[in-house]
Design a protein around this nucleic acid. Structure first.
Lengths: 166, 166
DNA sequence: CTTATAACTTGCAAAATGCAAGTAAACTCT
DNA sequence: AGAGTTTACTTGCATTTTGCAAGTTATAAG
């Protein structure tokens, strides 16, 4: 198992190549878990609330490792446990994930609080800088906890200034 | 046909919700085709070089329309032809696609010329502004043509200034 | 030494995908 | 006007991927 989704690359387009590795329902969620929630172990991914099956999780972890996005390392304190960590290539997905998060929060009914999205949208650079810092320093404190309110909303910006301004 | 991949939303996380709609190998490629290449018709998507099967293409077009990303309109000049167009929700995916393109070009061997990637990375706002303008004005001229050189390279920035700076 | 825990495998049914062929409606050509 | 072409899909079927439940192995804890 743990084979590529299909034999190969479809075209030389960067978007296409990216999707060869990440274009499925689970891969980017795993990256999200490790990047913003500080998850490291198989167990944590499994219990992250999305309901991924263990065989699929194992398969995706393999593919992400083979794709150079994740690295496995044996836990120092517990010989049973494996820690997954983002590689430089993996942490470089931060902008993709940030934009996907903002898009989802703006256009789908989610549990993300408006204020949080507004703040992230108005300070992308700051959010990314903090994400990179956490990665470099191996800071496991979640940048964002799992959103778990009940009421799902379409977050709209409360102050229109700053939109489309990078 | 044309049903959701599974029954439903897994969590209230915006990334997860986004992936419910876009998390597969084809959906974002269709969005790319219509956004940056100016493709509008079934035929064009089909022949875009990625090799999507017609039944899958039809299914994804349905899902993207139901998801509010694409809109169908009957072509004015040819009654057989349907034109697909991005909705406001669809064009709002531009930052996601841009970041995915940059990531792919930097970290996977692609056909994208370094110079083009460098320029896009250093002027994200300009690229996005032009993308929005093309959409508003229904300008069908491709923003980027399909990359079709032979030699695949990892594009690295030739000038390190500007990295991670928004 | 027994039990628990972490990280996976395995088997199998169900769903999604890929491929080739077929179809209906709208045009074009003669 | 009739024949052939083009566009946008369907349909059938084999293959692949997914999801679910249960099982396995290697540590660790009591």
């Amino acid at each position: 198992m743990a084979r590529k989704l299909k034999a190969g690359p479809r075209s030389g387009c960067p978007v296409s190549m990216s999707l060869d590795l990440l274009g499925d329902r689970w891969s980017l969620l795993i990256v999200r878990d490790v990047m913003v929630r500080g998850y490291r172990t198989f167990r944590e991914f499994q219990q992250s609330g999305e309901g991924i099956a263990t065989n699929i999780l194992a398969d995706r972890l393999d593919k992400l490792e083979q794709g150079g996005v994740l690295a496995r390392e044996r836990a120092a304190d517990d010989g049973r446990s494996t820690h997954y960590r983002l590689t430089p290539k993996g942490i470089a997905l931060a902008p993709v994930l940030l934009e996907l998060l903002i898009w989802g929060a703006r256009h789908e009914p989610t549990d993300a609080p408006c204020a949080v999205i507004d703040q992230m949208e108005q300070d992308r650079a700051g959010v990314l800088a903090e994400t990179y810092r956490r990665w470099e320093q191996r800071d496991p404190v979640p940048l964002l906890p799992p959103f778990k309110t009940g009421k799902k909303t379409h977050a709209r910006p409360n102050s229109p200034k700053g939109r489309n301004k990078r």
